[in-house]
Amino acid sequence: MLRIEHLTKKYGNKTAVDDLSLHIEKGMIYGFIGHNGAGKTTTIKACCGILQYDEGEIYINGMSIKEDPISCKSILAYIPDNPYLYEFLSGIKYLNFIADIFGVPQFEREERIKKYSGLFELTDDLAQPISSYSHGMKQKLTIISALIHEPKLIIMDEPFVGLDPKATHILKNIMREICDSGGAIFFSTHVLEVAEKLCDRVAIIKKGKLVVSGSMDEVKGDVSLEDVFLELEGGVGYAGSVD
């Protein structure tokens, strides 16, 4: 579903992503982990066609994001790390706008908006301007807008930030449902416990380079994902104990 081949992206002299290759297959939840500034967001934005890259290629369902961006974008959905939305629109107008762009028929869009806004308990607030929404509400709206056209691939950058526990639980269930029905999900997160429980495969990136990738069992073995990650990062650097 998503194939990243030798992706390299530079900002001036700094190489943000260095020869990165990943393959996310259908039915797979793929976690993308790394420290702040490791190159996760750069990779994700390149996959969504909103950031030009220097070398390599990205294929979505076999189509190049560089050569055929519109076809690629029509089957994917992107959830950014910060839910910046059109604050001058109401929630429902924003969702309807997104549905118009994806050409979702009226009946389907109404059904999906009803379903997901109900699940995320946002229905009553849909007529409110987005400017009045809290961070969590904006995040929920971004998630609903990403689901409105039933994408085959969802690319998410820190999707759980700002969500309440119930919404987090619902999102995890939705992610699993999408993958069970043949979709794929590629997401970055710092919440390693969530990644450990949710992901089929995981990749750890450090300073733009892929450090390790594979199935969750292959990567973590008998220890926790947190232990693996911290070891790869060179330890905690903190003498205290959290236990």
């Binding site: 969504c48 909103i50 961006p69 974008k73 992107y78 910046y84 939305l85 997104i98 762009i101 994806f102």
Partner: peptide, 10 residues
Amino acid sequence: RNLWIPQSLP
């Protein structure tokens, strides 16, 4: 900051 919306849509 909303530039990501038109750039990520098909």
